[in-house]
Simulated assay, not measured.
Amino acid sequence: MITIFFATSTGKTEDIAQRLASFLDCPTQTCDVDTLSSAQGFCRADALICCVPTWNTGADSFRSGTAWDSHVESISDLNLTGKPVAILGLGDSSSYSDYFCDAMEELHSAFRKSGARLVGSVPVEGYTFHASKSVINGRFCGLPIDEDSEPDLTDDRLRGWAEQLKREMLDLLT
């Protein structure tokens, strides 16, 4: 089963997590990171999709401004060797073009250090932004979503990513 973890300040990230779950068409559950007493809660999932907003633009750490910031440093210490993990980030490419979806990279780095198998990178083509720490080797390290400036693209991006994740994750779970 895939667990979609999210943390939100405004409700947008939770909404995106629910919408993504509807597109996955496989056993999925959602979990608010606020309900986790420790990062150990991530170990109980078979596969993880982590939905994170970027609030603290320009910061070097704790960029999400949500409950993710309480767990991000502990994630690196977990043993998630081989566990499939995908990251989805929300950001505003118009107002915060220099920090677009930066919090994705922070989670990506933490899960990589834990030994997780990171999946779900997407091309930067089709996005309008100036800079993002979440671009690694010329690709976004997860799926960026811009509900502020490009909400009309969200469902198509979620649908396409859901299909990609089913190919990349479900093979690892069987």
Rank of each mutant, 00 (worst) to 15 (best):
152 D>M: 09
164 Q>C: 07
64 S>N: 10
23 F>R: 15
85 V>F: 01
10 T>C: 11
76 S>R: 15
174 T>E: 12
165 L>S: 09
77 D>Y: 12
141 C>N: 13
29 Q>G: 12
123 P>D: 11
170 L>C: 10
56 N>H: 11
43 C>K: 05
36 L>R: 08
122 V>M: 09
29 Q>Y: 00
16 I>S: 08
48 L>R: 04
28 T>D: 08
67 A>Q: 12
140 F>H: 14
107 L>N: 07
18 Q>H: 15
37 S>G: 02
159 R>M: 08
51 C>Y: 02
97 S>W: 01
114 S>W: 04
16 I>Y: 13
35 T>W: 00
37 S>F: 00
158 L>P: 06
111 F>S: 01
162 A>T: 07
38 S>T: 05
132 S>F: 00
42 F>A: 02
122 V>Y: 08
29 Q>K: 13
103 A>D: 05
112 R>V: 11
87 I>R: 04
13 T>M: 10
14 E>Q: 15
50 C>N: 04
70 S>L: 15
11 G>V: 11
135 V>S: 01
7 A>N: 13
162 A>G: 09
138 G>H: 09
95 S>N: 10
86 A>I: 03
144 P>C: 12
112 R>P: 00
171 D>T: 11
24 L>V: 09
171 D>V: 14
167 R>W: 03
83 K>Y: 05
151 P>D: 11
48 L>E: 07
136 I>R: 15
166 K>V: 07
164 Q>L: 14
129 F>A: 04
33 V>C: 06
99 Y>D: 08
52 V>G: 03
70 S>D: 15
62 F>H: 14
45 A>D: 01
132 S>R: 01
47 A>W: 05
23 F>Q: 14
129 F>S: 03
56 N>P: 03
68 W>Q: 08
91 G>A: 07
17 A>Q: 04
139 R>W: 11
147 E>I: 09
37 S>Y: 01
128 T>V: 08
34 D>R: 11
117 R>I: 00
169 M>N: 05
102 D>M: 01
127 Y>G: 05
91 G>V: 06
91 G>P: 01
163 E>C: 06
112 R>D: 08
30 T>C: 14
92 D>N: 11
110 A>V: 02
106 E>I: 00
67 A>T: 09
133 K>S: 03
130 H>E: 06
82 G>I: 07
138 G>M: 07
122 V>D: 10
144 P>M: 12
1 M>D: 03
152 D>H: 14
38 S>W: 01
174 T>S: 14
94 S>E: 14
131 A>Q: 02
47 A>K: 04
31 C>Y: 06
73 E>T: 14
120 G>S: 06
133 K>M: 02
125 E>D: 15
145 I>K: 10
69 D>K: 11
7 A>V: 10
151 P>T: 10
26 C>R: 15
8 T>Q: 13
16 I>Q: 12
76 S>L: 06
101 C>M: 03
151 P>M: 10
92 D>G: 04
22 S>P: 09
43 C>G: 02
108 H>E: 02
98 D>A: 05
91 G>Q: 01
2 I>W: 00
18 Q>Y: 13
159 R>Q: 13
155 D>K: 04
27 P>L: 07
171 D>Q: 13
68 W>F: 15
